[in-house]
Design a protein around this nucleic acid. Structure first.
Lengths: 189, 189
DNA sequence: GTCTATACACGGATAGAC
DNA sequence: GTCTATCCGTGTATAGAC
């Protein structure tokens, strides 16, 4: 019965994610991950060819999701800036824990090849979606402010479960998306 | 003449900063730093008790600067929100390279004790300076957006030398500070 | 197909010679 | 103030048990 096969891989990813989020990628040893699962370090090497490979495998869904999100926005003919910012925020929230771990150890991700370029690419394409194909330098600067801030807000929201920050009636997402729109000097559309 | 003593320490810090900024803190080995200076790994351990100690020493000026900046703002009786955001942005720019290295490897800084709490403390005190002693959840969320974005903008500006982004006449600082003020729903005061 | 045993190179760190 | 020698932990890799 090959049932347990993918199971183990998933369990490894889970345990690894917890540890990566808590202590960062580089600071987490394979021995720790293995011990958390009751197997040995070397067993991990059956499932993943390297530590980086494990990370890449964990990051892939997020990368695919982001790619899909941006592409869908581009194909939507009358996508508003608000829609774009909301989609970006939601994407950040969906992968909150991983996103945090990733941002907390950008250096390690440099080795991983295309992750950081990919993040920059999304930013660039969001920028074009919002401001058209030839944004002014001022618009570029505001986009850094807005998208960077939104990313922070999404991570923080994911961390704290989504409650807390806005109180009972408040909707954190719209508060923060509208803030970003104001920063970009755009109407709340 | 004990002239060369502090000199070597400074040279180590310089070389280390370059490498940390380029490859991140954890990814940089002491051997690399030593080789860049023509000495051995062990020699470093005469000047710094540990790798963390080296990092702490490099980070201290930034920490002191930030602490001083926030305290001065608090003592200024009629400090505007704009002043506060400008001061924060300038602080980020002054320590651009280090700031980047620090943010790129937050995980490593967790071990370093009070750096991350300190950053949060600044955020909190800026928040109180801008919105008074009892900010609403909405204001908290917007502050995360604005301050996080401003931090990104400052890092990016420091990276790229300050030119580029705004073109000839534009002043990146005021563009981005005014964007943050709008995000916070405050007049450009 | 799944895991253990084992070896190796490299990283941080220390002790002691010069 | 710097070096050599050495220690232990960690990522990596392979051979082989079941």
């Amino acid at each position: 019965m090959p049932r347990r096969r993918t199971d183990t891989r998933a369990e490894i990813r889970e345990t690894a994610l917890e540890l990566f989020a808590k202590k960062g990628y580089t600071a987490t040893s394979l021995r720790e991950i293995a011990e958390g699962l009751g197997i040995t370090k070397a067993a991990l090497y059956y499932h993943f060819r390297s530590k980086q490979d494990l990370l890449a495998d964990m990051v892939r869904p997020m990368l695919d999701d982001g790619e899909r999100t941006v592409r869908e926005l581009e194909e939507e003919p009358d996508a508003t800036a608000r829609r774009a910012l909301e989609a970006f925020y939601d994407m950040g929230r969906r992968h909150g824990t991983l996103f945090r771990a990733v941002v907390a150890d950008t250096a390690a991700l440099g080795d991983l090849g295309d992750v950081v370029p990919r993040l920059f690419d999304w930013r660039e394409r969001l920028l074009r979606l919002i401001f058209g194909s030839d944004p002014t330098p001022r618009q570029r600067a505001l986009a850094v402010l807005a998208i960077g801030g939104l990313q922070d807000a999404a991570i923080m929201a994911a961390d704290d479960g989504g409650g807390g920050l806005t109180g009972d009636g408040g909707d954190l997402r719209s508060v923060v998306v509208e803030g970003a729109l104001r920063a970009l000097d755009l109407p709340a559309s």
